[in-house]
Amino acid sequence: MTRLNTREGWPEGMRLVVRRVRPSRRQLKKLTAFEKKTGWRYSVTATNIRHLWGIAGSHQVQFLDALHRDHAEVEDRIRTGKAMGLHNLPSSSWQINTGWVLAANLATDLDAWLRLLTLHDSEDLADAEPATMRFRLYHLPARLARHARRRCLRIERTWPWAPAFTTSWSRLTQLPAVT
């Protein structure tokens, strides 16, 4: 017995929502002894939300679980924003930091749109972290050259992510222009 659900000192109306799922390969190393024995991974959410006014079915456990899991996605976006530049603000000046936050948010949005529009079928890049995207696509080992009044991007042939970059580039250039 864990004695976690004694409710002593808990706010009025607090309840636990326990979700049981099959663990992924990535989660297998972090399972507790009980989870290894049962073969299930458990996630527990404490909430005091009884229901949301005007939303039918919001009192049900499934709705509350989906609401809290959706919030975890928001936290992932915050983590991505920090990786794209929001971690450290460069100045004590409000105006400079405002510009920095705007630039970091633009970078995060461009990264998300690039994945959505061009890398949706790439297994390793569709959900990659910003550091991985930076290493594989954004820090491109290439030269911009001019030949016959045209600019050419010469990508290193041995670079393992050249097909992903060229596919992404061709998909971006085929998008219709915004009018």
Results as ranks from 00 to 15, higher is better:
35 E>M: 05
37 K>H: 08
37 K>Q: 12
37 K>R: 13
38 T>C: 02
39 G>L: 00
39 G>F: 00
40 W>A: 05
40 W>C: 04
41 R>A: 12
41 R>I: 07
42 Y>H: 10
43 S>Y: 10
43 S>P: 00
45 T>M: 15
45 T>L: 14
47 T>F: 04
47 T>I: 06
47 T>M: 05
48 N>L: 05
49 I>M: 11
49 I>V: 14
52 L>H: 06
52 L>R: 08
52 L>T: 07
53 W>Q: 15
53 W>G: 12
53 W>C: 12
54 G>S: 01
55 I>V: 13
56 A>I: 08
57 G>H: 03
58 S>Q: 02
58 S>T: 00
61 V>R: 10
61 V>Q: 10
64 L>R: 04
64 L>C: 02
65 D>F: 11
65 D>W: 11
66 A>E: 10
67 L>R: 02
67 L>C: 03
68 H>E: 15
72 A>E: 14
72 A>P: 00
73 E>L: 11
73 E>K: 11
74 V>K: 02
74 V>Q: 08
75 E>F: 04
76 D>F: 09
76 D>C: 11
77 R>H: 13
79 R>T: 10
80 T>W: 02
80 T>M: 03
81 G>C: 06
81 G>A: 06
81 G>F: 02
82 K>M: 04
82 K>S: 01
82 K>T: 00
82 K>I: 00
83 A>C: 00
85 G>P: 03
85 G>T: 02
86 L>P: 02
87 H>D: 14
87 H>N: 12
87 H>Y: 08
87 H>E: 15
88 N>L: 15
88 N>R: 15
90 P>M: 07
90 P>H: 06
91 S>W: 01
93 S>D: 14
93 S>N: 15
93 S>H: 13
